[in-house]
């Protein structure tokens, strides 16, 4: 899922303080799971903002709505009539949702309430870690299901490097060396032969370096 983190209240206040009526829009998908922008967080943030502005002597209307998704037309359409009544929208969706909202409601100021961080997993309640960088050409089949693109600081295709010590990366003692994890896993799978094979240069044209990407699936298009 996409992992995001709520922005600090001061930053959000700075973005919306010149308006009088704000629609705070949450998203039921990834940001709900990472507890950054779901219905619960919308309620808490809306209450906090109402108290903040009231306490600072400003009359501010903050209304709440949480959509199933903010990255799909049909769900964003649900607030078409509603958004007209507000000066601005504060979206707690990931960067995708905020942008899609801004595209759809062209003359409505839309502000992000979260920082979108990475594609990751919930390791435990309250702890999310990066697992994928959406490079566009997956090599997990060759690396024992552990991704050196997202988990090795150098994105090495043939690791580890000299900075790997006792299974940890030189950038931080808390960061596992991805290549140590790969070797451990290949050993467990009895596939150390694969480790001996040199990986060819990775095709980075499917990564962000090739500019904004798109996926087209013509057979489902109407």
């Amino acid at each position: 899922m996409i992992v995001a983190e709520q922005k600090k209240l001061e930053e959000i206040v700075g973005q919306i303080q010149d308006f009088n009526k704000i629609l705070l829009v949450g998203c039921n998908e990834c940001v709900t799971v990472c507890e950054a922008g779901g219905k619960k967080e919308v309620g808490i943030l809306a209450s906090a903002l109402r108290m903040y502005f009231l306490n600072h002597g400003k009359e501010m209307t903050i209304d709440e709505v949480t959509l199933e998704r903010q990255c799909d037309h049909e769900y964003l359409e649900e607030i078409r009539d509603m958004q007209d009544k507000y000066d601005a929208v504060l979206s707690l969706a990931c960067g995708v949702g905020v942008q899609f909202m801004a595209e759809k409601y062209h003359d409505k100021p839309v502000y992000p309430g979260v920082n979108t961080c990475f594609l990751g997993a919930t390791e435990e309640r309250g702890l999310w870690t990066e697992r994928c960088q959406a490079c566009g050409s997956c090599i997990l089949a060759y690396t024992g299901g552990i991704c050196p693109v997202s988990r090795c600081a150098k994105r090495l295709m043939n690791g580890p490097c000299g900075g790997s010590t006792n299974g940890k990366c030189e950038i931080s003692k808390e960061t596992d060396c991805a290549w140590q994890l790969i070797v451990n896993r290949l050993k467990a799978l009895g596939r150390m032969d694969d480790y001996e094979k040199l990986m060819p240069l990775k095709d980075w044209s499917t990564d962000r370096a090739g500019g904004p990407r798109k996926v087209v699936k013509e057979d489902v298009q109407l």
Binding site: K8, E10, A48, L49, M51, Y52, N55, H56
Partner: peptide, 8 residues
Amino acid sequence: KVLRSVGI
């Protein structure tokens, strides 16, 4: 923590 951030 929320109260602290809103000045209450």
